[in-house]
């Protein structure tokens, strides 16, 4: 009978528990190891990029890579062929990357920001609950799909449109790739900015509205100035995303290393060249293959710096209102 279960007074034993401490230590060690994977991966990236890049810079001087304006990495089959050494000036790739990213930001910044403002300040709950997920679908669509759409639909459309008004638009124009990439990063900007705008304390809004400002005046004069650092952070993150984007430019921007600022011409990007250099059969120690790693290192360094700055800004901003 349970009622009879007496309280057996156990020894007041508090120095050993009934559990396997060594097992628990193993579990904790395993968890630490898993956390350290993040560090290992970072080190792995830096190490492999650096190592191959150093090999590359043994063959091609760094100054040519950073300041050369001709990119033609074709290495000849025979040593006595014309242009056997290839030219590895990355400037056209950098300018192409910046051009396309700039176009993308020009498209995404106003669209993303205004969407965020509308959703956080004007839209009712119902609209918000429908539109927000729809915008996020844009972020969920694989980039290869954007690339396909850019190459097959947007580029011909721009070309036809250009012809209509007497402009010569290249079939692999920077504009097509940039616009489509811009659409792709809209949700990134809108959702980050939305968070940032929502983090602005209600009291600031109330203060402004209480003084008789209209909604738009409140947004422009009070909320945006307060949210600017956070928004800047999200824009940097979006720019880093645009610079590192690969499939859209591979499929829609082509491989012509033109040094131009004309968005209607074809340009190529760092990422597109990496793909071109490394797909297909390769000799691993040729300058051509190694140059891909130097480009990778450049890309990694630039995006890392942008991400670090952006994270810093956003964290600082969060602290301010926490």
């Amino acid at each position: 009978m349970p009622e009879n279960t007496s309280i057996q007074v156990r020894d007041f034993e508090i120095t050993t528990g009934n559990r396997s401490k060594s097992f628990e230590n193993i579990v904790v060690a395993l968890m630490i190891a898993c956390s350290a994977v993040a560090i290992v991966v970072t080190i792995g990236i830096i190490f492999s990029l650096l190592f191959e890049s150093i090999n590359f810079f043994k063959k091609v001087p760094m100054s040519e890579f950073l300041f050369g304006t001709t990119w033609s990495p074709q290495t000849a089959l025979r040593a006595d062929q014309v242009g056997a050494s290839g030219r590895f000036g990355a400037v056209p790739l950098i300018s192409g990357t910046l051009l396309i990213s700039f176009i993308a930001m020009c498209v995404a910044t106003p669209l993303g920001l205004f969407s965020a403002i509308y959703l956080s300040e004007y839209a009712g709950n119902k609209t918000r609950s429908i539109v927000k997920p729809l915008l996020e679908i844009l972020a969920g669509i694989p980039t290869v799909v954007y690339g396909f759409f850019a190459a097959l639909t947007v580029a011909p459309l721009l070309r036809a449109g250009g012809e209509g008004i007497g402009l010569n638009v290249s079939s692999e124009s920077a504009l097509a790739a940039g616009v489509v990439m811009g659409i792709m990063i809209i949700p990134l900007i809108s959702s980050l900015s939305d968070d940032v705008i929502n983090a602005v304390p209600q009291s600031l809004r109330d203060a402004s509205l209480g003084l008789g400002s209209t909604d738009s005046e409140t947004i422009r004069r009070v909320i945006l100035p307060a949210a600017i650092p956070g928004i800047a952070g999200s824009l940097l993150l979006a720019a880093s995303r645009a610079i590192g984007e690969t499939m859209i430019v591979v499929m829609a921007a082509g491989l012509a290393a033109n040094l131009t600022a004309n968005p209607l011409e074809a340009v190529t990007t760092i990422t597109a060249q990496i793909v071109a250099l490394l797909t297909g059969d390769q000799e691993f120690d040729s300058a051509k293959t190694l140059s891909a790693f130097a480009l990778g290192l450049l890309l990694f360094a630039v995006t890392l710096i942008l991400n670090m700055i952006s994270l810093k800004i956003v964290n600082k901003y969060r602290e301010q209102y926490d």
Partner: peptide
């Protein structure tokens, strides 16, 4: 030498 866990059991 006290195991906190064993202490809390008591």
């Amino acid at each position: 030498e006290v195991d906190v866990v064993a202490l809390r059991a008591n």
